[in-house]
Simulated assay, not measured.
Amino acid sequence: MKIVLYFDLFGSKYENIYQYKDIYQFPKKLKNILNGNLELNFYSKNEENKFFFIENNKTNISNNIFNFLMTLFLQRKKTDICILFHVRLITFCLFIIYKLGNKNNKAFLKGDVNLKYLKDIYSNKFFFKGYLYRYLIRKTDIFFVETKECYEFLKEKKLNNIEIYSNNFDNNLLSEMNIVKKEYSQKKNIILHVSRVGTYPKNTELLLEILENIELNNWEVYILGKIEENFKLKISEFFDKNPHLIENIKFLGQITDKKKVYEYYNESKIYLCTSRYEGFSIAFTEVLIFNNYIITTNVSGAKDITNNNELGYICKREEDFIKKINILLKDEEQISKLDKKREEYIKKIFSTKHIEDKLKEII
């Protein structure tokens, strides 16, 4: 069975962290359960990407959109399952080309959407594009969403091709990287935040406002991620205003070595997400695996990853963050006592075995 992924990289440079994200992990799982051959096709204007490949899979990266689309057209009848990502115009075009004279072969679309985006699609916000997006969702053989709320919303639209695929952590990576999960008593007093620092969706301003109102004492905050140039001045101003926090808060920049990132997850106790909006963040499942207590805004996946506030905490406003963090720093038992429940929840919902078994049932 031939499984082929088509994906637009938006012109960005392909970095090795992509192979840990759902654009590779999802088709990889399909390959495993169907015992098929996997081919990866990317479009990007970035010349550096043409030297990239993932593991032993056939990987094609084109910087010419015509060649990218022509590859799909010529290979469509030799492809058993075509995997697409995101509800966008380029995805609509890929779907239409793939189905030309090829209606019997399957097209799976992993939406990577949040509830707000779906509501916009089914309102008049996108005008004609909204019609195209609704057609794409309705006509693809299986449309995968990541959260229960998105699934329930689309089921109300009387769609029968909707399935939940929760982004998960590949459990095999721990043994491959020789990482041993630490017990709570072995962890350090670290609060972790991972994002593209200073971008609008990640809302780093809120993070800084929260941190200047936290009694950190012997706790440290590690902030991982590329820092936007226009945000560096705000960081300097923050430390000018709060010089007592210089030793507690560390901006570590972008770390592309995934093993090193996992080691930070393994050492930390609390994970903060202040985003305005997200798809289902892969980081959520990664930090959950390492038994971090997740405190987050109500982004897509927050209810799923915290099991409706049982294993973490969803905040509506800045004051909620401040109050909850200060409570946890004074009473760590509220974090450690949930370790067993997290392990059970991961096994039930987010383990590789559970995800692959569910895909077998669907397909």
Rank of each mutant, 00 (worst) to 15 (best):
G101D: 11
G101R: 14
G101C: 13
N102K: 10
N102F: 13
N102I: 04
N102V: 03
K103Y: 12
N104W: 05
N104D: 15
N104K: 15
N105A: 11
N105F: 08
A107E: 01
A107F: 03
F108D: 06
F108A: 08
F108R: 05
K110N: 11
K110E: 04
G111A: 14
D112T: 15
V113C: 11
V113W: 00
V113I: 14
V113Y: 06
N114W: 09
K116N: 12
Y117K: 12
Y117D: 13
L118P: 07
L118G: 05
L118C: 04
K119L: 10
K119H: 08
D120T: 07
D120I: 08
D120K: 14
I121Y: 02
Y122G: 09
Y122K: 07
Y122Q: 06
S123Y: 04
S123I: 07
S123H: 05
N124F: 12
N124M: 03
K125W: 01
K125H: 03
F126T: 01
F127S: 06
F127R: 05
F127H: 03
F127C: 00
F127M: 01
K129M: 11
K129F: 13
G130L: 02
G130C: 03
G130D: 04
G130F: 02
Y131P: 01
Y131V: 04
L132E: 03
Y133W: 10
R134S: 07
R134W: 08
R134M: 04
R134Y: 08
R134L: 06
Y135L: 09
Y135R: 04
Y135C: 02
L136A: 00
L136I: 01
L136C: 01
L136V: 02
I137K: 10
I137E: 09
I137L: 14
R138N: 10
R138P: 00
R138C: 06
R138G: 02
K139W: 00
T140C: 14
T140V: 15
T140N: 09
T140K: 02
D141A: 09
D141H: 11
D141S: 11
I142Y: 10
I142S: 01
F143M: 05
F143E: 06
V145C: 12
V145A: 07
E146V: 01
K148M: 11
K148Y: 13
K148I: 13
K148N: 14
K148E: 15
E149N: 10
E149I: 12
C150G: 01
C150H: 00
C150E: 11
Y151M: 05
Y151P: 05
Y151T: 06
Y151K: 08
Y151L: 12
E152V: 03
E152W: 01
E152D: 14
F153S: 07
F153C: 09
F153D: 06
K155M: 11
K155N: 13
E156F: 00
E156V: 01
K158A: 07
K158N: 15
L159K: 02
N160S: 13
N160C: 05
N161S: 07
N161M: 06
N161V: 05
N161P: 09
N161R: 04
I162M: 06
I162L: 03
E163K: 13
I164F: 03
Y165L: 02
Y165M: 00
Y165R: 00
S166H: 09
S166P: 07
S166D: 00
N167V: 15
N167L: 14
N168Y: 13
N168F: 11
